[in-house]
Design a protein around this nucleic acid. Sequence first.
DNA 1: CCGAATCCAGCGCGATACTG
DNA 2: CAGTATCGCGCTGGATTCGG
Lengths: 143, 143
Amino acid sequence: MSVGHRAVTGSPVEGPVLSCETPQDECGVRDVLDRLGDKWSVYVVVELAGGVLRFKELQRRIHGGISQRMLTLTVRRLERDGLVRRTVHPTIPPQVEYELTEMGHSLTHLIKSLADWSIAHRPAIAAAREAYDEAQGVPGGPR
Amino acid sequence: MSVGHRAVTGSPVEGPVLSCETPQDECGVRDVLDRLGDKWSVYVVVELAGGVLRFKELQRRIHGGISQRMLTLTVRRLERDGLVRRTVHPTIPPQVEYELTEMGHSLTHLIKSLADWSIAHRPAIAAAREAYDEAQGVPGGPR
DNA sequence: CCGAATCCAGCGCGATACTG
DNA sequence: CAGTATCGCGCTGGATTCGG
């Protein structure tokens, strides 16, 4: 998501509001999205789905190249939410292992369906986008 | 690579859950997340899942109160991606109707599963979070 | 090797005011 | 009613540096 900006003014807590008024029941969707919506969480979960990884190894595998800082932040948030387990081995040099918890693994299924949907509709979206851009701006063509 | 995790009572998560093991294969998850990850898109889709709505009506229904600016931006992006259809009736005063396309409707299923997961794991996450904050002695959470 | 701390740029989002 | 324009805030995330 990376919604750069949460409630600014007033309202201290939005709470579990959003009662299920609509047939589709959007209750709680925000929660998941706020967790997976940031730039790296999904990648971390995906990599850890393959097994236990150490910090450096995890960093190396993530596509696009995550900075040390962001990997730390991401992995910490996931740990705090109980999705990732962090194990420190008091050796020298230090060795820290990361793995998904049960809950973390269950997230994997969600991610899978997101990926499936994306792959299935990617062409359609690309086409729609192109058509839209063509119809709107982009008067690039002759006149 | 094998998923070498200890099976736990209940639901073992062994198996090819995520079929994305190639380096640069992002599974396309990013695409969906970039689309739903913003603050309002999900809400718009959910509301439109109930049927056709006009601009003002849509704005009124969205939880939290979306500004006209953000509703315009959100709805435009969804339209561009072919998830929402926008119909302008050249009347006075102007009347614009929004509705989900086929692809948009297919998204509602995804949203549903996100909501289901969130609702199912919300207590566990809250507990994990509390335990973490407790252990760290951080009164207001990390970061 | 792991990670915390600091500085800094980008932009998501909200508030407000104005147009057709 | 529907939409655009302008401005400011502060969170996200990148680069770098220091510490254990």
